[in-house]
Design a protein around this nucleic acid. Structure first.
Lengths: 339, 339
DNA sequence: GCACGCATTGGCAGCGCTGCCAAATAGGTT
DNA sequence: AACCTATTTGGCAGCGCTGCCAATGCGTGC
């Protein structure tokens, strides 16, 4: 009388196999297979019989078996640092849009910005024998690099081109992005420039931007007035607190460069709360064109990167068997009202 | 002399199989298999030899073959409307955190809030014979429902409990969330209340919140003063524009309920830009505890839901083989400074 | 010394599908 | 009618692994 012990009531699952379909359609297995994959030749009469039989039985092809039997898989392993960061969300969206139009499927893993986690993910995704990998950035652990190279899978590394790639690389120069930001501030006449950043050990691309930024300042004969780096992931709160500490410590700042728009937004809110006029009292410069930052009372001055396109291009090159290459998609400086 | 015609130079990929490992370790295949899965019994001597052989050869078990040979797969199909929405990103993060500690792997699909896309995804994920599915909400197309039921997979539907679930349901009542929001505004003395919402045909949970909101107003003897529903996905811009239209059309509003925090933030920025004092001139109420909205000069009054926990609980129940059940995780009204 | 139980091991038949090849059929041609 | 080619079809061996079962070895108790 007890039937509530393990899961809901459900009809015992009886899988329908290709041979069931073949029998139902009164054809051989391989014929049924050819029809269902629409490959090779078969008569119209056969086609309709097999299709009808498959329909009638509710046949769902088993990709596991299919992949095992054929040589290459139709899986793409995707490894990103985070879902929450809009950058990766959009890259994923772009990649997915492309993969949706093919018969590739993506298997996704999230590293939380930890390289050892990336390594774990690569090795466990490898167990599915993916045809390709999509990764963020160019920096991977030696073990991960070795595994990737040995896997025979194609690899697309996205969002950064400052360094050596393994195969396909799609992105832009983070160092150049940092330099462009510094040059903008300098051209606008700012001289006492600070930096508020996050966790540069983890976010290596942010570190590259900072390097480029500092370098361009030096080229202009300036140096960073002060910096405040919080040891946590980027967030609005971290930006707010970081700027607060910077302002409390150092006077005379006329502009601040933030490691990204989340941080910059926090800074902007702090200015609003403290009654500082932006950009007269303090100019703010962000990075990455966060949607929200375009609609604040004063749109944020920032640098926008074509994240969606990066995902699209990466995925397309990967599945189309294009040769190894580096694609620089560039970036765009957005002149808002804050710098 | 041409070797740059198809992808990077790479050693021809020679996969290492279990039988290679077995031969190298001078044991039988099944013994090697038992050691590598740490299952069944074997001597310490055998263990170390097999491990060493696997290590030496760089063996990566083939999950495709393993899954085919054993009965059940270790895959979980996850289908969410969007990556960009922080809600789903956090649910995913929670689910992934749990799955990472098991040997389940997730295969993710994104519907873009389109039910027909959900159906396509369910059917193509089914080809991987997943052990479980994680879905957003309770509303699915009839075909998708049929497929899911017939698949034999466990199913977790997240983020909503207003309706009938298929198996495991983890979330909260969106209608109750709407009611709680209305009661708060009424208790605070607001009487001329408006609504600014997005694409309710697509976002069915937002529609449920609106229903609950309107219902609670009615119970208090009030009715909605006016509403503005934009026919697009939620965004800061949509909230800003929506509120602008509402204000330009209707005077005397004292509070506005937004379909979520993105929208509300847009509304807040509009008030800042127009010099409206919040909440004196206009009170604002959001939904979903967007991180950013806690750090605006005035924190947004909103309703927070435990998204991470929802993902965690859903995944945990799914993989632990728990019986079908509904888990109400509730929500929390966050009294900010805007209502 | 022999039977018994337990731990350990290897052989082998599939899992459901695809790829290869040979067989069967169809459609002309002389 | 015999012959040839092109199309269509079915049989069957794997893909790499797991699950089952039988075989082996070893320590115990009588």
């Amino acid at each position: 009388m007890t039937d509530d012990d393990a899961g809901p009531n459900r009809i015992p699952f009886v899988p329908v196999t290709l041979s069931d379909v073949a029998r139902e359609a009164r054809v051989g297995e391989s014929t049924a297979s050819r029809v269902l994959r629409n490959q090779g030749s078969f008569s119209e009469r056969t086609r309709s019989r097999v299709k009808a039989a498959a329909e009638r039985l509710g046949y769902v092809p088993n990709r596991i078996a299919g992949t095992l039997a054929s040589t290459g898989s139709r899986l793409i392993g995707i490894v990103v640092p985070s879902f929450a960061n809009i950058v990766f969300a959009e890259v994923l969206r772009g990649a997915n849009a492309v993969l949706d139009d093919t018969d590739f499927q993506s298997v996704i893993g999230v590293t939380d910005y930890r390289q050892e986690q990336e390594e774990r993910l690569v090795s466990s995704l490898l167990a599915w024998r993916p045809a390709g990998f999509i990764l963020a950035g160019l920096e991977h652990s030696p073990a991960a690099t070795t595994m990737l190279k040995a896997s025979g899978a194609r690899i697309a590394e996205l969002l950064d081109i400052d360094g050596a790639g393994l195969d396909i690389v799609v992105g832009f120069s983070n160092e150049a992005a940092g330099r462009a930001s510094a040059r903008h501030l300098v051209a606008r006449g700012y001289r006492r420039i600070g930096y508020v950043g996050h966790d540069l050990d983890r976010d290596l691309r942010a570190a590259k931007r900072f390097r480029g930024f500092a370098q361009a300042l030096a080229e202009a004969g300036l140096s960073l007035h002060d910096r405040e780096v919080v040891g946590q992931p980027s967030s609005v709160e971290a930006g707010k607190d970081g700027l607060a500490r910077l302002l409390d410590r150092r006077s005379g700042l006329d502009a601040v460069y933030f490691s990204n728009d989340d941080m910059a937004l926090g800074g902007y809110f702090l200015c609003l709360a403290r009654g500082l006029a932006v950009p007269r009292d303090l100019a703010l410069f962000g990075y990455n064109g966060l949607d929200i930052a375009r609609h604040t009372p004063q749109p944020l001055t920032t640098l926008r990167t074509p994240r969606l396109r990066i995902g699209e291009i990466g995925a397309r090159l990967l599945v189309s068997g294009a040769p190894a290459q580096v694609v620089d998609v560039g970036f765009e400086l957005v002149e808002g009202a804050t710098a």
